[in-house]
Every structure is written in structure tokens, then in C-alpha cells.
């Protein structure tokens, strides 16, 4: 799929508050060229006086359509994310550019086992990959580990639960509040979690890790310590230390 050079006009089609801090936005972008699972885009907002701001967002949708789905987490000191989470409404317009990035992607020609590991809103590109895996009826063994603060902070929880099947296993880590009856006590992800709830080195999985910098650093280091070759671990980080 080609990268379109310029900015494309998008219209907000739907905006759904799905977590206390975040929203799923569905955009209609008539000129969108389609995107691979895992890619991102730049989103540009222009104020009435001409002031502009641009941020990058991962894309939850994939494939040839002109509907582009994002999930946006509100950053407390943010300038763009509060607008997207609190203010923007269906019918409002903005601009996007992309798709961008050809590394953190999954193609349905890939047949090896895949381990997906997400922290917080880092789930977005991994949802895209999981959707592409389902849509292709791929038999490649997939496993996902999703770390969230509390159940209500999870994006796409019902959809992920529906993906579970012979070739998709889903595991959760809750860092602050676990659901009643959940076997694992709330707490940050550990080596023991990764050993117990991800594909082993013996499967030689390709591992995709996305989340806040600290989360990705921790997880990637544990994976390397467990013996996963560094070149089999793809990471995408956001935010500062």
C-alpha cells in the first residue's frame, strides 16, 4: 500500500467513551489508501485562527477500507488528546496522514507463532494485528498478554474475549485492581507472569510489545533474559520516562 504524501480530510463518524480516560474514534477518510495491521498515522488539528498541532496515533483498523479507527488515551497535560477524548463529536473534521511505519506490522502471509504484549493504550496496534489474524482465518498460533490498571481501563475487552479460540489465547495482568476472583493479585508485570502467560522461547515466536516506555523496557528486558532473541522482539514505545 502506498503512503499518501499529503494530508487527508477525515470526518469523525463515531466517538465512543470506552474507558474512564479514553475513547475509540472512527473516522471516515474517503481518500485513505488502506493500511497494514500495526501501522500508525499522523493526526493534525487546526484551530480557527490557523494554529495547528500534530500527533501520531496507532491504528486499530486494518485493510483496504476508508474507515479508520483509533483509540485515544487522555494525557493529563496533553493538548491534542483531551480534545479528542472530551471535545470532538461526530461530524467534526480533522486531517490525517499515512499510513506510517513498515516495521511494527503483521502480514497475513506470516505463519510463525506470535506473542502480543500490550500495556494500557498500547493495545491499539495489537488489536489491529489480532483483527487481521482473525480476518485471514490464520492458523498461526497467537497469544496476547494485556496489562491494564483495572478492568475498566481495558480497551476492546469484549472483542478480545471473542477472539479467543484455537489459535488465539488471551491473558490479563491487572496492575492496580484485579477483578473479584482473578487468580493473580494486582501488581506490575513480572518475569513470572511472562514465563507463565506467554509463548515459550521453544516456539520461537515473533513478539510485539507496545506500551508506555517503562512497561516496554521492563517486558523487553525480561524477554531477552528468558532467551528470546532480540531480533525476534519488535517494540513500540510512547511517552517519556
Amino acid at each position: 500500500m502506498a503512503i499518501v504524501a499529503g494530508w487527508l480530510v477525515g470526518t469523525v463518524a463515531r466517538a465512543m467513551r470506552v474507558t474512564p480516560q479514553g475513547r475509540i474514534l472512527v473516522l471516515d477518510v474517503p481518500e485513505w489508501p488502506g493500511n497494514l495491521a500495526g501501522q500508525h498515522l499522523d493526526l493534525r488539528l487546526t484551530a480557527e485562527d490557523g494554529y495547528q498541532a500534530v500527533r501520531s496515533y496507532s491504528i486499530a483498523s486494518f485493510g483496504d477500507g476508508t474507515t479508520v479507527e483509533l483509540a485515544v488515551d487522555m494525557l493529563p497535560d496533553g493538548e491534542v488528546s483531551p480534545y479528542l477524548v472530551e471535545d470532538v463529536e461526530p461530524g467534526d473534521m480533522l486531517e490525517v496522514r499515512g499510513p506510517l511505519g513498515n516495521f511494527f506490522v503483521w502480514r497475513d502471509s506470516q505463519t510463525e507463532p506470535v506473542q502480543l504484549i500490550a500495556g494500557g493504550s498500547g493495545i491499539v496496534p495489537l488489536v489491529s494485528i489480532a483483527r487481521a489474524h482473525r480476518a485471514a482465518a490464520s492458523t498461526a498460533k497467537f497469544r496476547m498478554l494485556y496489562s491494564v490498571r483495572a478492568p475498566e481501563d481495558a480497551y476492546y475487552a469484549p472483542e478480545l474475549a471473542e477472539l479467543v479460540g484455537d489459535s488465539f489465547v488471551l491473558d490479563w495482568v491487572y496492575t492496580r485492581t484485579a477483578p473479584v476472583g482473578f487468580a493473580r493479585a494486582a501488581g506490575r508485570i513480572t518475569r513470572a507472569d511472562i514465563e507463565a502467560s506467554t509463548l515459550p522461547v521453544a516456539d520461537n515466536p515473533l513478539v510485539y510489545v507496545c506500551g508506555p516506555t517503562g512497561f516496554v523496557e521492563t517486558v523487553a528486558r525480561i524477554l531477552v533474559d528468558l532467551g528470546h532473541p532480540a531480533e525476534r522482539i519488535k517494540t513500540e514505545r510512547f511517552g517519556g520516562k
Partner: peptide, 10 residues
Amino acid sequence: AVFSRGFGSR
């Protein structure tokens, strides 16, 4: 560019 309604307060 198209304008994004109400953007720019922050």
C-alpha cells in the same frame, strides 16, 4: 487545512 471545531483551547 480544514478547521477542527473548538480545537485550540489547550
